[in-house]
Amino acid sequence: MSLIGVYSSRDFSDENSYFEVEALHFNLWIIPQRKRDVIFNCHNGKPLWSFIFPRFSRNYIDVGLRIKVIPGGGLNWVDLHLPATNSNGDLNFFDLSEVVLDDRMNDLLFGRKVDVDKEKRTISYYRDGKSVQDEVVKVQKITDLKSNGRFRVEFAEPLKAQYSESYFYIRFRYECQNSDEILNKKGWGFAKAGFVIDVRLNDIRETVDFAEMNQSYNMKDVKEFNAFVVHPTNYMRSAQSPNVHYSRLLEPNAWRPYLVTCEPYSDKQKYVINQWKTTGVVSSAEPYRMFAQLQNEFGLNVFIVYIGGILSLPFLSWLASLIY
């Protein structure tokens, strides 16, 4: 299981507790590796078994957060629980604020017309029938809090609301360090080639054994949650809960500038994008659980397994003759 959560300060007199989460965006990118890279690079700094059973994809997660700060309040950081990470120090991430301010990309990201003021670093667009404006803020540092995947996201400058409530948007990307946490292998065998994805937002079942014990009291409600899972077309969705909002083919050329840090992305590869979205507020009392099962169709990887099984039949027959 993979937990996502947004947390405020424990001290409710701390100004870092006076904010609301308007929207949380979560993207999982499953990028297949080139086979030669799998063969020659899988052993670098990894256990021997990774050479025998290599991972055939590099996986990335994008996180976008729309925050409302009330007048007189300020925000220097926000705590997030991030899945598929290792507690080996601060998170190696890519800040995507400049991409959000890029006129070529923001319409793709938000799925609507976005106007940009690069001098003020703001984006304007229509949301729920009215025009809104967000200030795009750069992420300065993401610090590991040594609490089972909880990180402190620090901003380049404090988020301040002067005379009226203000809205801010941050977005960053990191490569999955522990992909098995979010892409659970179904097992070994021809009928088990695939993954199970289990993502949970504000689910207290995933927090009760943390070092700080139950953290539900300072979990922030999320007013809107949008999750995207992008995978190669050879994976078919065989089960899901709840139903996806929609699925479509990814536009490979259009997304190339956005995925430049997702090595080894190629616009020759076809991808399917699936979206899940909430219809109400997500809280610790009403968590959101997203489940999907991806089945790998008969492709090169499965073909190699089949050939290996056929070639091993004489040896297995000889071994059986020795035993019986």
Rank of each mutant, 00 (worst) to 15 (best):
W255N: 00
Q33F: 09
F172R: 07
G149F: 02
N226H: 14
V305Y: 11
S247Y: 01
E206C: 13
Y174K: 01
S241D: 12
V229R: 00
K270S: 11
T85Q: 07
S57W: 07
K192L: 10
V260R: 15
W77Q: 01
Y7F: 15
H43L: 08
R10F: 10
L48R: 14
L322S: 08
F291V: 03
A320R: 15
R104V: 09
F315A: 10
I323S: 09
F190R: 04
I170E: 05
D115F: 11
Q140A: 15
L96G: 00
G89I: 04
E165G: 15
T122L: 09
F12L: 15
K35N: 11
L259G: 04
I323E: 06
H25T: 08
N184Q: 13
A156N: 14
Y271M: 05
S284L: 04
E165H: 12
W29N: 11
Y7H: 08
P242N: 07
R152T: 04
Y235R: 05
F93N: 02
F151C: 04
L311Q: 05
L319Q: 06
Y167F: 13
L259N: 03
D90I: 04
I304M: 14
F303M: 13
A239L: 08
V38M: 09
F225R: 09
D134K: 11
Y167N: 13
I67S: 02
V114G: 03
L249H: 07
Y306S: 05
D62A: 06
L3Q: 15
S283F: 03
Q133C: 13
E212N: 14
G64Q: 00
V78K: 02
K277I: 06
K220D: 01
L259R: 04
L313I: 11
I204G: 12
N253V: 09
S166M: 07
N226E: 14
E175C: 06
Q33N: 14
P314A: 02
M219H: 01
A239Y: 08
R150M: 13
V114F: 03
K160E: 07
L91R: 03
L80V: 00
G194K: 05
I204V: 13
N184R: 15
Q295W: 13
Q177A: 07
F12C: 08
V199H: 08
P314E: 02
G45M: 04
L82D: 08
V153K: 00
E98Y: 00
S17T: 05
E119A: 14
R127G: 07
E157F: 09
V6Y: 03
V69N: 00
N44C: 10
L250C: 04
G45D: 04
H81M: 10
V6T: 07
A227H: 10
S247P: 00
S164K: 15
R152K: 09
I4M: 13
S87D: 08
D117Q: 11
Q275E: 11
K120S: 14
K146C: 07
R10Q: 09
Q177T: 04
P264R: 07
F228Y: 15
S97Q: 06
G129H: 01
V260H: 12
D134P: 02
D203R: 05
S216A: 15
Q162G: 05
R58C: 12
V281R: 12
V282Q: 09
F26P: 04
L294G: 04
S284P: 04
V282Y: 09
L28T: 13
I30A: 06
G308A: 06
Q293I: 06
K220S: 05
V208A: 11
Y246H: 11
W49F: 12
M1R: 13
V63N: 05
D102K: 01
D267M: 08
